[in-house]
Amino acid sequence: MKAKKNEEKLKKILIFIGVVISFLVLNLWQSGSLNQLNQIIKNPKLQAFTIILLAILIEGFPFILIGSLISGSIEVLVPEEKFKKIFPQGKFSSAIVGSFFGFLFPVCSCGEIPVSRRLIKKGIPTSAGISYLLATAIINPITLFSTYLAFSSFKMVLGRFLVAFICSVFIGILIAPKNKDEILKEYEDEDNHNENFSKIDEIFFHSENDFLIMGKYLIIGATLASLFSTFIPREVFLTIGRNKILSILSMQILSIILSLCSYADAFVANSFTYLPDMSKIIFMISGPMMSISLIIVYFAAFKEKFVKKLLISVFLTLFILGIFGSFIQG
């Protein structure tokens, strides 16, 4: 009943917004401002916003699609007992296996979310699912190699790998609940089986579902990321970065709002010349774990309470690891 009431309310709001917009358009048309539309379109801010938004989407959609396809295949083709055999049941050991799973399913940011959701649903230990979710965008051959290309220093590659590994295993153990239902959000027509479908059809059936849900959230996330990236100057963060502790914090925030692909962020991190190495490492880990576009997609796949817990613990763990690391480094 309540849902129905809410829906009615929403309907009224939407109609109201529609009326306001059409009134505005009519008004603009009458005053001749619409002729200036060409100039509004050419506005560099709008151009930059559009290009960055579409860039994130064009980059993300293929990975979401690949991720959805893998997820659909896991759902249909892999029997549940299989995964239970592969994964050790202990929290600690399964989290370690999970964090290296990226070598097996190397799907870049966005793509790993449907896959890890499905893996957890299929009954792998929750701690393994969480550490896979956090680690896979960093601990995979492509990302580590591109980090080497950007810095030509094994120290940075090792640093990125180690901190990401420690963080993902730690959080996998820390926040994993016993019951997978505490994590997974339920989708409405997920278990809607149709006998007429062949196995392949069923794979695509699940893939479409995953794609439409994650895709929607990716658009919202990309819109936010693009707004931030267009209007906030990077200099703000880089000047704060002169202080050791603040620089870790500001790099964390910058990585969240920039939403870069994990294959590319090493090159951007390298351009922050004056920052200590540890802040750069934290920048390259925080981004692939909790950038704004990912955060929004997390909410599509997992329960709200779990996502909040995940975000807070990742943020704090990285902050503490960052400070600890920068004192070791001197």
């Binding site: 290009i51 960055i52 990321a225 920039l258 870069l260 590319a264 962020d265 090159f267």
Partner: peptide, 9 residues
């Protein structure tokens, strides 16, 4: 560009 316009330097 390394990947996409979001990381353009």
């Amino acid at each position: 560009i390394t990947c996409c316009a979001a990381d353009a330097t």
